[in-house]
């Protein structure tokens, strides 16, 4: 058996893959948080609940309408994005002129309401969601077994992250978003409908969370608490990457996921706290985050 630092290669690669999978979800979720924070200046505590909603939309479509994974991959983000748009129009848009704390408190309360509602109807235990048949097998690489669905998640999340990065950094719409982040009044003076831009942005961030949720459904269980568990880690990722930094959120999402996986190999006791330890160190050395700009 091959050993690296006294660890079997198989265990190392296995945890590396687990880390990469977790990192894929961290990246997609922290990306949405960063996009929302960048433009709306709202710390979206409901992000975990939106992620959970995405998984549940897929689950409910399957149970009640026999609609499978592939259509849900489109329908779940659409539904969650639409929900986000309604939330922004009805509530968040009224909070922009107030202290940022109100946005945080509102989204925190919203998360509790959504999660409480689902807990009431579905209980705290998870519901299984079958893996799509097309991806249910795996590939034996000789030194380890590689499940196809996990490869799919890594590829899908990379595609989504790169596409979002491209949309924001390289397109005209992205230039509007970045300009509105700097000086929303002047962007409106130029004739751009900034309130609409804010609505679309929140909808996009919510859709990203919904997409992460439906992707997570086959490997984690569909549970009302799945968002609560992940959102705290995702906030740590955003803080390490730098609030509002798109690239920072993506890169740190993957890196911290892998770091967490490796910690499970070398010192499993610390794997649950390693991301928070890193966050504390980064906050001490670079309070604006590794990719954040000090303002």
């Amino acid at each position: 058996m091959v050993l690296i630092f006294g660890i079997p290669l198989q265990a190392l690669l296995g945890q590396l893959l687990v880390g990469l999978i977790n990192g894929s979800f961290y990246a997609m979720l922290s990306l949405g948080l960063a996009v929302i924070f960048g433009l709306l200046r709202i710390i979206n505590f409901a992000h975990g609940a939106l992620y959970m909603l995405g998984a549940f939309v897929g689950y409910l479509l399957l149970v009640y309408f026999s609609i499978g994974f592939w259509p849900s991959l489109i329908l779940a983000p659409l539904a969650v994005g639409l929900f986000g748009i309604i939330i922004e129009r009805v509530a968040l848009s009224r909070l922009y002129d107030l202290d940022h704390l109100y946005g945080l408190l509102f989204t925190f309360g919203l998360a509790l309401v959504i999660e409480g509602t689902f807990r009431y109807y579905f209980g705290a235990s998870g519901q299984p969601y079958a893996m799509p048949a097309l991806l249910s097998s795996g590939t034996n690489l000789g030194f380890m077994f590689l499940p196809n669905y996990r490869v799919f998640i890594v590829v899908a999340s990379l595609v989504v992250c790169i596409a979002t990065w491209f949309l924001i950094e390289k397109t005209r719409l992205g230039a509007y978003l970045r300009a509105a982040t700097e000086n929303p009044t002047l962007v409106r003076v130029f004739g751009i409908n900034v309130p609409l831009l804010l609505t679309v942005t929140y909808g996009l961030g919510a859709a990203l969370a919904g997409l992460a949720g439906i992707l997570a459904a086959p490997i984690y269980q569909v549970s009302p608490l799945m968002g609560t568990n992940i959102v705290i880690v995702v906030f740590a990722v955003v803080v390490v990457g730098g609030m509002g930094s798109i690239g920072g959120a993506i890169i740190m999402g993957y890196m911290l996921g892998i770091f967490e996986g490796l910690t499970k190999v070398f010192y499993p006791e610390a794997s649950n706290i390693v991301i928070f330890v890193i966050m504390a160190i980064v906050l001490l050395i670079r309070p604006a985050g590794l990719f954040g700009k000090i303002t």
Binding site: A175, R178, A179, E182, V187
Partner: peptide, 12 residues
């Protein structure tokens, strides 16, 4: 806009 290029500023 500091984070936009000159060209992006021009086309804003």
């Amino acid at each position: 806009f500091a984070t936009l290029t000159v060209e992006e500023n021009l086309f804003l």
